[in-house]
Simulated scan of single mutants.
Amino acid sequence: MRLSTVILPIHRWGEGQKIWRRAEDLGFHAAYTYDHLSWRVPFRDGPWFGSVPTLTAAAGVTERMRLGTMVTSPNFRHPVVLAKELLTLDDVSGGRVTVGIGAGGTGFDAGVLGEGEWSGRERAERFAEFTGLLDRLLSSGDVSYEGTYYSAFEARNIPGCVQRPRIPFAVAATGPRGMRLAARYGQAWVTTGDPTLYETGTAEESLAAVRGQVDRLEAALAEVGREADSVERILVTGFTPDRAEAFSSVGAFTDFAGRHREAGISEIVVHWPIPGSVFACDQGVFEAIATEARAQLGGAAAS
């Protein structure tokens, strides 16, 4: 099982670069960051920097660790511009980029462009079109496309990605349509668990929900003729009912991760501690988890 982290883009780079370096020193497989223009309380009115510039800077101060968005969405992104930025990041990092992509949500920065929030149906339709076009743009040097929501005319992406045939996609999905996208385009699939269990669910219910999601992913993979183990399964922590208990000690985390490995998860992503937030965690415990728990779970350090 791989162990990765997500570093929210809330630090001025003088401080932020130390965190990204430390993440690599601790041996994390990957370090991701959120792709938002702002986020929920208590971050809504505080510092929040852009994801791609942050990841580009992180590429310059790390050597081995993978880097990526967790996740980007159509909320304020156009595939043509995003593809160019990702291609550049892939080049700067020497082919260490994974792009986490999802349908996006409501609130926060969903309406920041002044267009209002989309219905659930439109969001799903945009996500499907967005993902398909991004796949083409990152796989081909010249793309023209006319869709319902997105278009491209002779979009050039030369010389192409360092990683071939393109940068890996980690597709966040829980519903049937999203699972089909993950099965068709994903090199990885992302979940945060079942959001309906966040407040009142139990650890057992949450684990069963994740296991059910993995089963649905495997069914979607079978439908498109892909092997069940051809897609990595990523759990982003901090959104399950047992989130606090899981980070109380190395042993508690190892138990948490082991149960999810048995449920089919192959990569666990932990938030870098942020005091006074839902991601608060003792830094010493966190760093012990990064080293000791990874060793117990059989995850290799970044290389």
Results as ranks from 00 to 15, higher is better:
residue 78 H to N: 15
residue 86 L to F: 08
residue 37 L to A: 06
residue 70 M to K: 01
residue 74 P to H: 03
residue 143 V to M: 05
residue 54 T to N: 11
residue 97 V to I: 15
residue 99 V to F: 01
residue 126 R to C: 06
residue 35 D to Y: 01
residue 43 F to N: 06
residue 59 A to Y: 06
residue 44 R to F: 11
residue 123 R to C: 08
residue 90 D to K: 07
residue 47 P to V: 08
residue 56 T to L: 05
residue 62 T to W: 02
residue 31 A to S: 15
residue 37 L to T: 07
residue 72 T to Q: 01
residue 65 M to R: 03
residue 32 Y to F: 15
residue 45 D to A: 12
residue 68 G to R: 09
residue 50 G to W: 01
residue 124 A to C: 01
residue 72 T to Y: 01
residue 90 D to W: 10
residue 74 P to S: 02
residue 117 E to A: 00
residue 100 G to C: 07
residue 129 E to Y: 09
residue 60 G to D: 02
residue 51 S to E: 00
residue 26 L to G: 11
residue 37 L to P: 01
residue 31 A to T: 14
residue 39 W to N: 08
residue 115 E to P: 00
residue 42 P to V: 13
residue 62 T to A: 05
residue 85 E to F: 07
residue 40 R to E: 15
residue 27 G to R: 03
residue 45 D to K: 14
residue 101 I to R: 02
residue 95 G to D: 09
residue 71 V to W: 00
residue 69 T to L: 13
residue 71 V to M: 00
residue 72 T to K: 02
residue 94 G to A: 07
residue 38 S to R: 14
residue 137 L to Q: 12
residue 97 V to A: 02
residue 32 Y to I: 00
residue 76 F to M: 05
residue 130 F to Y: 14
residue 77 R to P: 11
residue 44 R to Q: 14
residue 86 L to R: 10
residue 63 E to P: 00
residue 60 G to A: 04
residue 45 D to C: 03
residue 110 A to H: 10
residue 34 Y to S: 07
residue 47 P to S: 13
residue 93 S to Y: 06
residue 52 V to F: 07
residue 47 P to C: 01
residue 74 P to A: 03
residue 31 A to F: 04
residue 134 L to S: 10
residue 66 R to V: 03
residue 50 G to P: 02
residue 129 E to S: 08
residue 74 P to N: 03
residue 34 Y to W: 12
residue 137 L to S: 07
residue 64 R to M: 06
residue 37 L to Q: 07
residue 90 D to L: 07
residue 50 G to K: 09
residue 58 A to R: 08
residue 76 F to A: 08
residue 48 W to S: 13
residue 133 L to G: 05
residue 127 F to G: 00
residue 48 W to C: 09
residue 92 V to W: 01
residue 78 H to L: 04
residue 59 A to W: 06
residue 115 E to N: 05
residue 86 L to A: 07
residue 110 A to V: 14
residue 51 S to V: 06
residue 43 F to C: 05
residue 109 D to A: 04
residue 112 V to D: 08
residue 36 H to T: 13
residue 92 V to E: 02
residue 47 P to N: 10
residue 67 L to S: 03
residue 77 R to C: 14
residue 141 G to V: 12
residue 68 G to H: 08
residue 51 S to H: 04
residue 56 T to M: 11
residue 53 P to Y: 10
residue 63 E to M: 00
residue 37 L to S: 00
residue 34 Y to R: 01
residue 96 R to I: 11
residue 125 E to A: 10
residue 120 G to P: 07
residue 134 L to R: 08
residue 37 L to Y: 13
residue 107 G to T: 14
residue 126 R to W: 09
residue 32 Y to A: 05
residue 31 A to W: 02
residue 142 D to A: 11
residue 82 L to K: 03
residue 73 S to R: 01
residue 58 A to L: 08
residue 84 K to S: 14
residue 88 T to Q: 05
residue 128 A to I: 11
residue 116 G to Q: 04
residue 111 G to A: 15
residue 73 S to W: 04
residue 140 S to Q: 14
residue 118 W to I: 04
residue 142 D to K: 13
residue 25 D to I: 11
residue 104 G to D: 12
residue 113 L to E: 12
residue 36 H to A: 13
residue 53 P to R: 02
residue 60 G to F: 00
residue 81 V to A: 13
residue 89 L to E: 03
residue 46 G to F: 01
residue 26 L to M: 12
residue 74 P to E: 02
residue 115 E to C: 01
